[in-house]
Simulated scan of single mutants.
Amino acid sequence: MDKLLNVSSSPHVRSCETTHSIMLDVAIAMLPASAFGVYHFGLHALGVLLVTVAVCMLSEYIYEKLMHKPNTISDCSALVTGMILALNMPPEIPLWIPALGGVFAIIVVKQLYGGLGQNFMNPALAARCFLLISFAGKMTNFSYAGFDGISGATPLAALKSGSSVDLPAMFVGTIPGTIGEVSVVALLVGAAYLLIKRVISIRIPAAYILTVAVFAALFGGHGFDISYIAAHLCGGGLIFGAFFMATDYVTSPITPKGQIAFGILLGVLTGLFRIFGGSAEGVSYAIIIGNILVPLIEKATLPRAFGKEGRSL
């Protein structure tokens, strides 16, 4: 009798990873880009980061307190939302705008849909799109008193207008842009951390980046121009979006084939917005639209159940 097996309900395979540990890893991975953004843009960028994170966490605490729901501040999801939103802000943005975005992200996009795991789109990106629509002028003003007095349009905006861009500066990050998108080096360090810790898979970022490169080569009007393609890959927050936003567990497909399809969809949408649209960016809107289509992607890519009865002819 002592050799009888115990029968229990699923899940039978468990992981030591928790929501807290995963979100903390994502926050740690964004520290290099955050540090470079503060170094490059100055103390106001630090203020944007601190205010946005504080408002996101406070919004979650107050809402759950008022609704008599369990407190989830400790899972660090509000921290990650605040950091992503702040890193998507222009460096000289008035502090009340990202604060308003933090309230929108946590309460409207996340909590009103049931909290973490129930939101159908990335809260930080939804808030950024809300702010882009509401305060277009301030959200697209990338002038700042930075390195050597650099100011003006982002490299992708210059590229779209036919001007040349400085690729080494784009890679290092000494360019105008949002706080967290400018330094490809810092973003890749954080991405490597996430991949090494196995917090994310390479499927979505690889499919996304490769699709943008192919789209730019086919429809950009410059053919297979390495400099032109590299500018598209290094600019406009593509690296930030591919590794830190498109890979969000809640709003991305769970199937391997679905993740590849999702990445390709994001790449096509980003290419359409950048090359044929009026904006030079496109990453935020591409990911938001992709989030909405995730249920359809999962439905089409779910593996067929073993032994499922086929259709009768």
Rank of each mutant, 00 (worst) to 15 (best):
A192R: 10
I204H: 06
L167D: 04
A280L: 10
G278T: 15
Y208S: 07
I264R: 00
A216Y: 03
C234E: 02
S164L: 14
V165T: 14
G220A: 05
V182Q: 05
H12F: 11
A99L: 05
L194I: 14
I73R: 03
V250W: 07
V268G: 02
S183N: 02
D225K: 08
R311C: 09
N141M: 07
L46W: 03
F147D: 00
G241H: 09
S8Q: 12
A158R: 15
P176F: 00
P70V: 01
C76W: 02
G223K: 07
L5V: 11
A126P: 06
G271A: 06
I62Y: 04
I28K: 13
S227E: 12
R128K: 15
F171D: 03
P123Q: 05
D166N: 15
A186L: 01
R203A: 14
A169S: 13
S312P: 00
G278E: 14
S227L: 06
A280R: 10
I28C: 13
P303S: 09
P70Q: 04
C16D: 14
S252E: 04
S201M: 07
L49P: 02
L125G: 10
A192D: 04
P256Y: 03
A261S: 13
Q118L: 06
F36Q: 03
V199G: 11
P90A: 02
G278M: 09
T140S: 15
M245N: 12
I106H: 05
T247Y: 04
G282P: 12
L195M: 15
Y249W: 09
N71V: 04
Y249F: 12
F262M: 13
D166K: 01
P91C: 03
A126R: 01
L87W: 01
L218I: 04
V38L: 01
V185E: 00
D166R: 01
T19M: 11
V55M: 07
C56R: 01
P91H: 00
A207H: 06
L210W: 00
G42Y: 00
T255P: 08
G307W: 00
E309Q: 08
S34E: 03
R14D: 04
S10H: 08
T18P: 02
V184Q: 03
L187R: 10
K308M: 04
G146K: 03
Q118M: 12
S227G: 15
V268W: 01
M170T: 05
D248W: 07
N119A: 06
E281H: 14
G173W: 03
L210C: 14
G42K: 00
L50W: 01
E181V: 07
A217N: 03
L131R: 11
